[in-house]
Every structure is written in C-alpha cells, then in structure tokens.
Amino acid sequence: MLEIKDLHVSYGAISALRGISLKVDQGAIVTLIGGNGAGKTTTLRTISGLLRPKRGTVVFLGEDITQLAAHRIVARGLGHVPEGRMVFSNLTVDENLAMGAYLQRDKAVIGRNREYVFGIFPRLKERLRQVAGTLSGGEQQMLAIGRALMGEPKFLMLDEPSLGIAPRLISTIFEKIQEINRDRGIAILLVEQNANLALEVSSQAYVLETGLITMEGPSADLRNNPQLKASYLGG
C-alpha cells in the first residue's frame, strides 16, 4: 500500500529525518512511535506532500508520489488527520465535512460517507450547525477523522489522535480507528506517543528516535521488548 525508502527531510539546516524506511501493507494498522521531536509529524507531512524530502521516495499504491502536489495525493486516496486536528475552526461541522468531500462529485457517495461518519461518531450529527472551533477537543478529533473519511481514503494517517483528549474519550477514539480499519478495509498509519495503546491496536510497529528508525517489528513483540518498556511503556 505505502512504502517509503531512505527518506531524508530537513528544515533549513536542521535535519529532522535521516534516512527512514517503512512499509504499510493493505488493510494493516501500523504504528510509528517516538518521543517529542523524533520526527513523526515530519514523516507524515512528507508522505502527504506538505514537505519535500531531500532524498528518498514515497511510493503509494505502486506509484511514486514523492514530487506530487498535496491535493493530488489526497485524490489518490490518502487521508491525513493532522497533528492538532486542524479543523476549520470558523466553519460549521457540516461545512467541515463538506470540505472533506471536496474532491468527491457524486452526491450519492457523499451522502453514504456522511451516514457512515455519523454512524461511528453520532455526536457530530448532533452538532452539525455548530462552529467547529467551539467543539471540545475530543469532538474536534472526531470531526478531523470524519472529515478525512469524507474523502474516501484507502489509506489513513493519524497524527497523535490521543493528544489533549480526556482519557475516557481516548479509548473510544481508538476503538473507532479499529472499527474504520475493519469495516472499510482502510489501512492505517498511526503516530502516537502513547505507546501502550498504539501497540495494542496495531499489528506492526516502528520506533523513531531523532530522525532514525531504531526498532521495528510485530507490535506484540515490541510490547515485550525490555528496552522499549524502559523508555516508552512506563517501565
């Protein structure tokens, strides 16, 4: 589904990624964990075309998308729920969802996707006319995910969906992520600092540290890895 090879990305003189490679298979949930400033967000932004790598390639559905404009990458079926949610704060929930379906012309498909989004996040349906900026953090996260789903992605990247959300809601959000993966067969790349949770829902995991992948393997194995336990899993 997605394969990145030897990706190097820098911000001016600061290099944020120093040659990382990773792979997400069809239908899989893969997680990318790592501490603050490891380069997780940079990785996702490079994949979705918001940043250009200095070196390396991004191949999506068998096609090299490394130099493709961000809006064209979306059109190929890549969804990205960005860090900090980035809902359109002055737009209503309804308008945010409509923007999610920006590239979709078929009204019937849009209607079907809306129903699906309301099915997993009924809260959004109750708040359709509300301005997105006034939603709670958890509701904004639901909206950000819902908005991405309106684009009918084949592959979805989520950047720290648990950030700034009440603990009670976090488990709901993670259940929904698994549900989306199961129901729609959407492959998922999940970026998290909450390693315990991320390893629980994923099948494959990568650990990123200051721009390099330092560990990778089946999530079940990594969960029991003593080194990882010490640094990310709270002992």
């Binding site: 918001l50 961000a70 979306v74 359109f88 002055n90």
Partner: peptide, 17 residues
C-alpha cells in the same frame, strides 16, 4: 467555503484536496 477554509488553514485545506 474553500476560500474560507484556505484563509483559516492552508495546510488543512491541502489535506482535504
């Protein structure tokens, strides 16, 4: 609506296509 979206957050606007 896309105009308003771009005005609010160009990155997020790109990410919805």
């Amino acid at each position: 609506t896309a105009m308003r979206a771009v005005a609010l957050n160009p990155k997020a606007a790109l990410l919805v296509g």
